[in-house]
Nucleic acid binder design. Structure first.
Length: 608
DNA sequence: GTGTTAAGCGCC
DNA sequence: AAACGGCGCTTAACAC
């Protein structure tokens, strides 16, 4: 047996690496020592748990000063047995390891999940900010440096350096590094010692600030999300292959068109701007760095493709602008969606996107690899790629205007609450109050934008630019809006005042503390509203499981749940799902809209 | 090669 | 007085 030593937090720690079954006696003794919680971690060949070629390589257990690093190929049974003991484990980003162990050792998420603490969840509850947002972030290294030992090793970064010295890269290293490499084994073991120590440091902090209940909820939610990820979604592979080809043909056609105007690379904003200027177009808008802006909002009017606004000039539609927009769109759809889908699908044609249950600083969930929360919704062709399992139908239920309802509920504004109770269209109601009974569609659009401005903290300038409306008209609308819904302005003011004179944070009804940036206190309203809407969706996922609807859930998308159900009972299923999503929140009805889509996700967006 | 920033675009 | 919130991902351009 190989035993390494390493100093962590001033204490000498031992890392044991058994080489024969005989060495496992020591492991059994270690397990019998009576630690209430053991650190656990895995080392694998990559991130794609569900795709061919993925392997579990190491599984590590550790307490505050001793770690055991077990090779999966030699000791898979011992690892599984250890995980099946009636005790708690602590992992960092447990969703990943839970799925690895489920898929490759047969210890299921259902079995192990309830016995898991996740230091990433605890970290997010203590401070949800990423490193880039001024927080500690949620990686093991910075967390260890702050809470365990400033000198704690950078195991990930350290290994990357080892990869390089061996002629491997970040992409190839995890699979390619020799399984007996000492640094690899050392760092693998250290991670469990760090996670154990981190847990012993921040676990009590979470309890002290009264977040135990929320912590429990998030751990439970994460388990349900891991099950969702394991289930995945079925991809219509032949459809995606055909789609990819046609998107590439389209992209090529418009690239050629752009080339005729001197733009060799449609993705080069510099080239596009230069060519447009040479054609006599005026580019007034600037990017933050001062370059001419040539995004879609600029190009579409030039191409006369914007149906929203009337053209103010008499210039002919610009064919280059159109070619650039269309080429970029087709290429993006082909690459970011079609290619990614095929790349990430497992052998059975299923996709298992990462579901980050507690991702944004508002706790919003995120979905990546691939980004299924961001598929085009104006066109059904991309969503059509996802189909129900045989005999099933895709359904969905979404919250109706949930952020406005949450804002009404939290602010207690009586006028808005009454409008919601009366089942009125909020934006039309607002438009009528602001512009009078003869309000137009444009008025409703401004009213809607002002409402979003309240939620997002946006000002008159932004709303004017977004709606194309006159800035003075927008200013008047905002004033009228504030007069109509005085409670909302008061509520926002209150949140900002508190942050100005007290802690720079908002606290949501669920007890989540959301730090504010000192120069962006106006974001307070958005944070608490967005976060609360997220908590309502999270609760709906838990409730759906409790109601026996969990087996059908496929994806959360901010304010909706995508699901599938046996074709002959899809209607009942989604009606039940919609019922479960409904609630009364601070006296305001949170309603949902259940809908049967059909054989594919795209059928909810016009596919036939 | 790897990493970073800027610009852009998809969603809620 | 004004202030657009939250993500994931791609390409270009550049630094090391």
């Amino acid at each position: 047996m190989l035993t390494l030593t390493h100093t962590v937090g001033g204490a000498e720690c031992r890392i044991h690496i058994p080489e024969s079954r005989h060495d496992l006696y020591g492991f059994e003794e270690f397990l019998a020592q009576g630690d209430k919680v053991l650190g656990f971690d895995t080392e694998t060949t990559g991130l794609d748990v569900f795709t061919r070629g993925f392997q579990l390589r190491l599984a590590q257990f550790g307490n505050d000063r001793e770690a055991w690093v077990l090779r999966s190929d030699l000791f898979g049974d011992a690892i599984a047995r250890a995980l099946q003991q009636p005790r708690m484990f602590v992992m960092h980003n447990a969703a990943y390891d839970l799925l690895v162990v489920d898929r490759h050792l047969g210890v299921t998420v259902e079995e192990l999940g309830p016995h898991v603490f996740d230091t990433r969840i605890l970290s997010h509850l203590l401070d949800p900010r990423a490193e880039s947002e001024g927080g500690i972030g949620h990686s093991l290294k910075p967390l260890s440096a702050v809470y365990v030992d400033p000198e704690a090793p950078d195991t990930q970064g350290g290994l990357t350096a080892v990869f390089r010295s061996l002629g491997l890269t970040k992409a190839t290293g995890w699979a390619g590094i020799d399984i007996t490499n000492e640094t690899y084994l050392r760092y693998a073991g250290l991670d469990t010692i760090l996670v154990s120590r981190l847990f012993h440091e921040i676990g009590p902090l979470v309890r002290d600030v009264g977040l135990d209940h929320l912590s429990k909820f998030e751990h439970h939610l994460q388990l349900l999300l891991a099950i969702m990820q394991r289930r995945g979604m079925l991809l219509d592979v032949p459809y995606v292959e055909t789609l990819r080809e046609s998107l590439r043909v389209e992209a090529e056609q418009y690239r050629k068109a752009a080339a005729r105007y001197g733009v060799e690379n449609v993705n080069s904003t510099g080239q596009v701007a230069e060519a447009l200027l040479a054609m006599g177009e005026e580019l007034d808008e600037r990017t933050p760095s001062g370059a001419a802006k040539v995004d879609k909002a600029v190009l579409l009017p030039l191409a006369d493709l914007d149906l929203q606004w009337e053209r103010l000039d008499v210039r002919a539609p610009n064919p280059l602008a159109e070619a650039v927009v269309r080429a970029k769109r087709a290429e993006k759809w082909a690459t970011a969606y079609a290619d990614a889908f095929l790349e990430l699908a497992d052998d059975a044609g299923r996709l298992h996107p990462f579901i980050g249950g507690l991702q944004a600083r508002t706790a919003r969930m995120s979905i990546s690899r691939p980004p299924l929360q961001q598929l085009p919704s104006s066109d059904w062709v991309i969503r059509r790629a996802f189909v129900a399992d045989p005999g099933h139908t895709i359904v969905a239920a979404d919250f109706q205007a949930v952020e406005m309802r949450v804002l009404a509920a939290l602010s207690g504004d009586e006028t808005m609450k009454a409008a919601i109770t009366d089942g009125l269209d909020l934006h039309s109601f607002t438009a009528e109050r602001v512009f009078g009974p003869d309000f137009t569609k444009q008025h409703r659009k401004i009213a809607k934008a002002v409402g979003f401005g309240k939620v997002y903290g946006g000002g008159a300038t932004t709303i004017a630019r977004q709606t194309g409306a006159d800035i003075e008209a927008v200013r008047r609308a905002i004033t009228a809006y504030d007069d109509t819904f005085p409670g909302i302005k008061k509520y926002s003011r209150r949140l900002i005042n508190r942050a100005e004179y007290g802690r720079k944070e908002v606290v949501t009804p669920s007890g989540r503390h959301l730090p504010l940036d000192r120069d962006r206190l106006y974001a307070a309203t958005n944070y608490v509203v967005q976060s609360t809407a997220r908590d309502l969706l999270a609760q709906a996922i838990v409730d759906a499981h409790d109601a026996g609807l969990g087996d059908g859930l496929l994806l959360p998308v901010h304010d909706e749940l995508i699901a599938q159900a046996p074709a002959d009972s899809a209607e009942e299923y989604v009606r039940e799902l919609g019922r479960v999503m409904g609630s009364v929140f601070h006296g305001v009805q949170i309603a949902s809209d259940p809908e049967v889509y059909g054989p594919s996700w795209g059928h909810g967006y016009g596919a036939a």
